[in-house]
């Protein structure tokens, strides 16, 4: 139906205001990243990206994401199966805990690992004795990233699987399918787009996370700097073109995520949990 509140002249005004707000507040910063990155020409843009430190940061970012995202994807599926397919006491408490990392400051998400594994942490002395390094090392980066991105896949799957109900799985079981076959042939096809959507958001956050990893990384240049941390290092060294060049890679990652996300929402909206977008 037509919008029922129609005032002559107010629609264009609202559209113009919305465009202005989103343009200035959101689109402008994105443009600035690329404008600054290319401000000294293409060669000056490429140069800092081919430095060993930068390449190492990119590699480290990929490694951290490659470990954290699958872990949280598997967790998301397991948690969704438990929460959406069974009734048990304490379910809402469990869901609260799954959601908790969303409401924690990224810095706190890093801090808790330092409290556990840092030099003066609970397990710090023991780790030192055995010469295991977690804080200021890759494993610390992974832990911090895992905590920050833990809810993404689960949050996407739980409402969807609750909506879908267990009828199809029950039908498969009555038809003689085993548990694993049922999951593989019935459940997974039903949730694949939502799973992909969750993984996509999880990955974007994992690669772009800054606060949590900066706490556990110690920012040892060329060793424990992920790409976002590398941006900070360069920026603080007044290497602005380099900082924005590195930032432009991350911004492109964000844009690609946005495009795929929009495509999924447009093409498979029925198979995503509607209205649950992060």
């Amino acid at each position: 139906m037509n919008p029922s509140i129609r005032l002559p002249g107010i629609a264009p005004l609202f559209v113009a205001l919305t465009l202005a707000i989103l343009g200035v507040l959101i689109v402008f910063p994105l443009g600035v990243v690329f404008q600054q990155a290319f401000s000294k020409g293409f060669a000056a843009y490429l140069e800092p990206l081919t430095q060993p430190d930068a390449l190492h940061a990119i590699r480290l970012t990929l490694i951290v994401a490659a470990i954290s995202v699958p872990l949280n994807a598997v967790f998301g599926v397991a948690a969704a199966w438990a929460v959406a397919r069974f009734e048990f006491k304490g379910k809402s408490l469990l869901v609260t805990f799954i959601d908790l990392p969303f409401s924690m400051s990224p810095v706190v998400s890093g801090l808790v690992w330092v409290l556990l594994f840092g030099a003066q942490g609970w397990f710090g002395p023991w780790l030192q004795e055995h010469n295991v390094k977690i804080i200021f090392a890759t494993s610390g980066l992974v832990l911090a990233t895992v905590l920050v991105t833990l809810p993404f896949v689960a949050r996407e799957l739980i409402p969807l699987m609750q909506d879908q109900g267990a009828d199809e799985e029950a039908a498969a079981l009555t038809l003689g399918a085993g548990g694993f076959t049922t999951f593989w042939r019935v459940t997974l096809p039903n949730i694949k787009w939502a799973l992909l959507y969750g993984v996509l958001l999880c990955n974007a956050r994992a690669m772009g996370e800054f606060g949590a990893v900066s706490v556990v990384s110690g920012s040892v240049r060329g060793l424990t700097t992920t790409l976002p941390l590398h941006v900070e290092v360069l920026y603080n060294d007044y290497e602005f073109v380099g900082a924005f060049a590195a930032a432009s890679i991350l911004a492109s990652l964000g844009l690609v995520t946005l495009v795929i996300k929009t495509f999924l929402e447009w093409r498979h909206s029925g198979e995503l949990s509607a209205g649950r977008r992060h």
Binding site: L201, A204, M207, G208, F210, P228, A247, L250, A251, G254
Partner: peptide, 8 residues
């Protein structure tokens, strides 16, 4: 703002 890394 969801998709853009915070440092960026």
């Amino acid at each position: 703002p969801f998709a853009l890394p915070t440092a960026v």
